[in-house]
C-alpha cells in the first residue's frame, strides 16, 4: 500500500490515483465503459449487412446439419470467399470428410455437432485455407504464451 499522507489539491489527488499501478486496469476499464456508454447511443445506426461472406445455411434433413455445405469428398463445392481467385482449390476442404466422419454421418443423424473434430469441413476451409494467416498468428500466440508459462514454471529460484 502506498502512503496517503495529507489531502493535497485536487490535481495531486488525481495524479496520485493515476500513478498507482494497482489502478491501471481500473482506469482502462473506466475508459472503456465511457466509450461503450457513448457508443450505445449510436446503436440504431449499426445496421446488419445482409450480404455476408461465408453465410450460414441450415438444412435440418442432413446428418451434417449446421455444417452441410454440399459437395462430395475430393470434389469442390461453392464457398463465398472474399477473394476466390486467391484460393484456386477453394471448396475442396469444405467437401472433404474423413472415412470415420463418413461412417458416423451415414449411421447417425448427429454428426453436425462434431464435424469440427475432424479434418475437413467449412470451418477448416476458413481456418486453414482462406484465412490461414489468422491461425498462424493464433498458434504463434499460443506458442509464446506457453513459452512464458514454461519459463516461469521451470526456472530455479
Amino acid at each position: 500500500m502506498k502512503r496517503r499522507e495529507g489531502r493535497g489539491t485536487r490535481i495531486s489527488r488525481i495524479s496520485r490515483t493515476i500513478s498507482e499501478l494497482e489502478n491501471l486496469a481500473g482506469l482502462y476499464a473506466v475508459l472503456f465503459i465511457a466509450v461503450t456508454l457513448i457508443g450505445a447511443f449510436t446503436l440504431p445506426s449499426l445496421l446488419y449487412q445482409e450480404d455476408q461472406l461465408y453465410p450460414k445455411t441450415i438444412d435440418t434433413n442432413s446428418s451434417l446439419n449446421p455444417y452441410e455445405r454440399g459437395g462430395t469428398p475430393f470434389n469442390t463445392t461453392e464457398v463465398r470467399a472474399q477473394y476466390p481467385e486467391n484460393s484456386p482449390y477453394l471448396g475442396y476442404v469444405t467437401a472433404y470428410l474423413t472415412p470415420v466422419t463418413r461412417f458416423i454421418a451415414d449411421h447417425t443423424p448427429y454428426l453436425g455437432t462434431t464435424i469440427v473434430a475432424h479434418p475437413g469441413g467449412i470451418i477448416d476451409e476458413i481456418l486453414y485455407n482462406t484465412r490461414g494467416l489468422d491461425t498462424v498468428a493464433e498458434t504463434s500466440i499460443l506458442f509464446v504464451a506457453f513459452a512464458i508459462a514454461a519459463h516461469l514454471f521451470r526456472r530455479e529460484d
Binding site: L24, A25, Y28, F32, L46, L47, Q49, L53, Q82
Partner: peptide, 27 residues
C-alpha cells in the same frame, strides 16, 4: 497489472473487428 489490461483490451479489439464485419460484411 499490465497483463490484466492487455487481457481486457482484447474485448474492444475483437469487438471492433466483429462490429466491422457485421455492419460492412467484410474484414
Amino acid at each position: 497489472q499490465y497483463g490484466i489490461v492487455a487481457m481486457i483490451a482484447t474485448v474492444p479489439l475483437f469487438g471492433s473487428a466483429a462490429i466491422i464485419l457485421a455492419t460492412t460484411g467484410t474484414l
